[in-house]
């Protein structure tokens, strides 16, 4: 199945801003963050098709996954 992955802020650095590629059916955002070497604890907002989702959300063909880093400084 095809998933579009959009990365924001420093998740892009050394990776990409957006890409669409084929994945095995049944994968979750956490499988993609693991593949991209993004530490789970740095993940803030996870959106699937613009809606909030958890890292263990089951992705479907055609989904758009957006990953934002956790920002907490002041």
């Amino acid at each position: 199945m095809e998933i579009t992955v959009k990365l924001f802020a420093m998740f892009r650095v050394g990776r990409f801003a957006a890409t669409t590629k084929k994945y095995q059916p049944g994968i979750s955002p956490v499988d993609i963050t693991t593949e991209l070497n993004i530490p789970e604890k740095e993940v803030g907002i996870v959106l699937v098709n613009g809606r909030h989702a958890r890292l263990d959300h089951r992705l479907l063909d055609g989904d758009i996954l957006s990953l934002f880093p956790l920002v907490g400084g002041g």
Partner: peptide, 25 residues
Amino acid sequence: SPCLFGAWAEQKGVETRLGNPSFTP
């Protein structure tokens, strides 16, 4: 609150690694 924390309810975010320059605040 769903926008404020990540998967593990971390105390700190990427600022611990990236710091904060003068213009962002």
